[in-house]
Design a protein around this nucleic acid. Sequence first.
DNA 1: AGATATACCTTGACAGATGAAGTATATCGT
DNA 2: ACGATATACTTCATCTGTCAAGGTATATCT
Lengths: 115, 115
Amino acid sequence: MPISADILRGHTDTIILTQLMEKDSYGYEINKNVQKRTQGQYEFKEATLYTAFKRMEQNGWITAYWGEDGPGARRRYYAITDAGREEWKRRSEEWHRTRGLLDALLVMEDNDESN
Amino acid sequence: MPISADILRGHTDTIILTQLMEKDSYGYEINKNVQKRTQGQYEFKEATLYTAFKRMEQNGWITAYWGEDGPGARRRYYAITDAGREEWKRRSEEWHRTRGLLDALLVMEDNDESN
DNA sequence: AGATATACCTTGACAGATGAAGTATATCGT
DNA sequence: ACGATATACTTCATCTGTCAAGGTATATCT
């Protein structure tokens, strides 16, 4: 069973930024890496992926350039900016905080009266 | 700094269901509990909360009844249904899976060639 | 009388995700 | 030579959850 859309919503940019922190990359490759890292459990829908690139470029978190002609279809590469690195850091910390909050909110508590 | 909306998106129903698994409750109380459990770090916007109740009632995960007149404003209580309990279980498992996926996707990997 | 806490409800607008459709190149099997 | 498949990117219309803003009502405290 796939992960429902809304659960991952808002993490798309962070997932992409994480990979661009390692090296410049392009949509198709990033998505293949997502599949590999999740052992096939998750992948972006194409529209989601390319919408995210446009959004992040507008926000100044990434810049784009066309890859030189190699074999296969032309590739649009993306590089992370300084602003993008800051955003990644912010988002990364937010994820850790959120994870803690959800762990607290999704567990049933004993009904103790001592509170 | 508050948790951004999109990060929690999709967890609203699960958070509410978790509390209804413990006992019948009403909007205001559920939200106070969210604040308590997160030490004030998070709370629902009212519109989000009551939208969620309506949605979940339509989905058959909860049922509603008016609390008998006590002191203060009248309360609308919600009770979880069997379908709701199943949904909670599904969502709960999904959260644990998602947490694992995100942990894998938001960490930088060493650039090893051995793959 | 006015402020505050409790408690609920509705409407309109926004933003991210996505189904669907399209374009283009290279490779592999037959 | 031809079709299937993999690679690779793009745009548009639609859907859904969130939430700002506004509203209603009761009880308590000063």
